[in-house]
Simulated assay, not measured.
Amino acid sequence: MSNVGLILEEKAADIGNFMVGRLLPFRQKRHVGPFVFIDHMGPAKLKDYQNLDVGPHPHIGLSTLTYLFEGSIMHRDSLGSEIEIKPGAVNWMTAGKGVVHSERTPEYLRTTDKTLHGLQIWVALPKELEDMEPSFVHVEEDKLPNWSDDNADYKLIAGQFREYTSGVPVYSPLYFIEIKAKNDFKVSLGQDLYGESALYVLEGEIKDGDFTYGTKQLLVAKDAKLCEFEMTAGTTVYIFGGEALPEEHFIFWNFVSSSRETIDKAKEDWINDRFPHVPNETGRVPLPEAQAKSKLKE
């Protein structure tokens, strides 16, 4: 019998000059634990004249996590951070009461062919921390907990799992785990998971009961404690989840909050240029007109 309670098909979304595959949120499922937004970027083959250019844009009430498989992104934010994100490292920016950042192809890659592939994730903050001071942490790949057995290589990208704790400073109980199968084998993690849980197959396939699942699907577990599945050799999966936050959260554009009034204020602040500026950047991504006139997403 399958433990998959919901299958969400990756859907195309436009983030400006770049198409991504959206995994969360969906009408059927707004969050998995504290995870409220996941975009799968690429894999995109970019020509020498094509670049990622997401100009300065704001966030409130969340932490962003960028994790690349291939390629490179230059991150700049209103805290003064300026760092190149490379595959395997974690970029963790906590917006709190408000932060602005840009994401661009690094200058040295802008006139060459390149590939961009990765995940961009939003994690909602607990209500009492939504107005905290913004912060930024970059954790290199060799600083993340990793371990291996005869069948697979494991990495804890964020949160806590078994005796391992990632150096990424999360604000509620969660986990974000990478598993790369070396052989065909059965994975049994349920006794160590908590809260809500979902699985994304990056490459390869898994089997759960009589069902086989491949890429471009987000599989939401009926019960995290029953998390068992079979992986085929060469498959890479990401398991994420944790304790759901008790309060309802709303999403409007790049803003996440348990308060509609806070989001309305953030909209007005962005329109009136009251957010901090990003050093060495010009221009700002405008508040989407159509969204500004619509109801908040529920």
Score class of each variant (00 low, 15 high):
M1E: 14
N3C: 09
L6E: 11
I7W: 02
E10L: 12
K11N: 07
N17R: 07
M19K: 14
R22Y: 09
L23D: 03
L24C: 08
R27Y: 05
H40W: 12
H40Q: 12
D48G: 09
H59D: 10
L62E: 09
T66E: 05
Y67Q: 02
S72K: 12
S72V: 08
S78M: 11
S78A: 14
L79Q: 13
L79H: 06
E82K: 02
P87D: 08
V99C: 10
S102T: 13
P106D: 10
T112V: 13
D113W: 01
L116R: 01
H117C: 08
L119H: 00
V123N: 01
A124C: 05
E130A: 11
P134R: 04
V139S: 03
D142H: 11
P145N: 03
P145D: 01
S148R: 15
S148L: 06
D150T: 11
A152H: 10
I157M: 14
Q160G: 13
G167A: 07
P169S: 08
E178D: 14
K180V: 10
D184W: 06
S188M: 03
Q191H: 15
Y200V: 03
E203M: 09
I206E: 00
K216A: 10
C227K: 01
E228M: 04
F229N: 02
E230L: 15
G234E: 04
E248A: 09
W253D: 15
F255M: 14
S257Q: 02
I263Y: 12
K267Y: 04
D273H: 06
P276D: 08
E281P: 12
T282W: 03
T282D: 04
A290S: 14
A292H: 01
S294H: 01
L296A: 00
L296Q: 00
E298K: 13
E298Y: 08
